[in-house]
Amino acid sequence: MSDVEKGGFIAKVIGPKRRWREYKARVKQLPPNYRTAVEAIERYLLHFGPMTADNSASLFEDVADLFERAAADRTPIREIVGEDPVEFVEELIRNYSKGGYVDRERARLTQAIESVERAEENR
């Protein structure tokens, strides 16, 4: 993969570099326990999160907002993520992946099956 292709891929995953750097600077300012939690969420999102720049950038920024407020209020991490951190992040992904590739493919699959069903009914 060329540097140009890598740059395009990175921008697609994390959004514009400026927004990414600003997000990373915000995370760096968090208290250690909140920073560790956000970095773990970030790792998960980079593997399984929405793959559009706008959605990803907004999602990362909103995670930073959430944890900044929680740190200011001294909210325990477990109160933020609940009993199942994976479900917490999966819910974030569901909220931010509307209109992304996966949703479009799900809609196509559903439409194709419905079309076949209608055709079978009309026989």
Rank of each mutant, 00 (worst) to 15 (best):
Val4Trp: 11
Val38Thr: 09
Ser58Leu: 06
Asp54Asn: 11
Trp20Thr: 01
Asp84Arg: 03
Arg74His: 05
Tyr96Trp: 09
Arg94Ile: 05
Asp62Ala: 04
Val63Asp: 01
Pro50Lys: 05
Ser56Arg: 00
Arg94Phe: 10
Ala37Arg: 11
Ala64Phe: 06
Ile10Lys: 08
Glu79Gln: 06
Val102Gln: 14
Asp65Phe: 07
Gly49Ile: 03
Val86Leu: 04
Thr110Val: 10
Ser58Gly: 12
Arg104Ile: 15
Phe60His: 02
Lys12His: 12
Ser97Gly: 13
Arg118Asp: 10
Ser58Gln: 08
Arg35Phe: 12
Pro31Val: 11
Lys12Val: 08
Phe67Pro: 01
Glu68His: 06
Arg43Leu: 03
Phe60Glu: 00
Arg118Ala: 13
Pro85Val: 01
Ile41Ser: 05
Ile93Gly: 06
Ser56Tyr: 01
Ile14Lys: 03
Gly100Arg: 04
Ala119Gly: 14
Ala71Pro: 07
Arg106Gln: 15
Ile41Cys: 06
Ala11Cys: 08
Gly82Ala: 02
Pro76His: 01
Ala119Ile: 04
Gly8Phe: 11
Pro32Lys: 12
Glu90Phe: 05
Asn55Phe: 08
Ile93Leu: 05
Leu46Asp: 00
Glu120Lys: 08
Leu30His: 11
Gly8Gln: 12
Val102Met: 14
Leu66Ser: 09
Glu91Leu: 02
Ala11Asp: 09
Ala53Tyr: 07
Arg18Val: 06
Asp62Glu: 07
Ala107Trp: 09
Val13Met: 10
Glu120Val: 13
Glu5Ser: 12
Ser56Met: 03
Ser58Met: 09
Glu5Thr: 08
Asn122Met: 15
Tyr34Cys: 13
Phe88Thr: 00
Ile113Asp: 10
Ala119Arg: 12
Ala70Leu: 02
Glu42Tyr: 01
Asp62Thr: 00
Arg123His: 04
Lys17Ser: 14
Val63Gln: 01
Gly82Ile: 00
Arg18Tyr: 06
Gly8Arg: 07
Arg21Val: 03
Ser56Lys: 00
Val27Tyr: 05
Ala70Cys: 05
Arg19Met: 11
Val27Trp: 03
Glu68Asn: 08
Tyr23Glu: 03
Ala72Glu: 09
Asp103Met: 15
Leu66Phe: 05
Glu117Val: 07
Arg69Cys: 09
Ala11Arg: 10
Asn95Thr: 08
Ile93Thr: 05
Leu59Asp: 00
Arg78Phe: 12
Met51Ala: 13
Asn33Lys: 12
Gly7Ser: 08
Ser97Thr: 09
Glu91Tyr: 02
Ala107Pro: 08
Val27Glu: 07
Ala37Asp: 07
Gln29Phe: 10
Leu45Arg: 00
Val116Ser: 14
Ser58Pro: 02
Glu79His: 03
Asp73Lys: 06
Arg18Gly: 05
Arg94His: 10
Leu45His: 00
Ala53Asp: 14
Glu22Cys: 03
Lys6Met: 10
Ala112Gln: 13
Tyr96Met: 04
Val102Asn: 12
Phe88Glu: 00
Glu117Arg: 09
Met51Trp: 09
Ala72Asp: 11
Glu5Phe: 15
Thr52Arg: 03
Glu39His: 09
Ala57Glu: 02
Leu30Gly: 13
Gln111Trp: 07
Glu42Ser: 02
Leu59Tyr: 01
Leu59Val: 01
Ile80Ser: 01
Thr110Asn: 10
Ile113Glu: 13
Val27Phe: 06
Glu68Lys: 03
Phe67Gly: 04
Gly8Thr: 03
Arg108Asn: 15
Arg21Ile: 04
Trp20Gly: 01
Leu66Gly: 05
Lys98Arg: 15
Thr110His: 11
Arg74Glu: 09
Arg123Cys: 06
Lys12Met: 14
Ala64Leu: 08
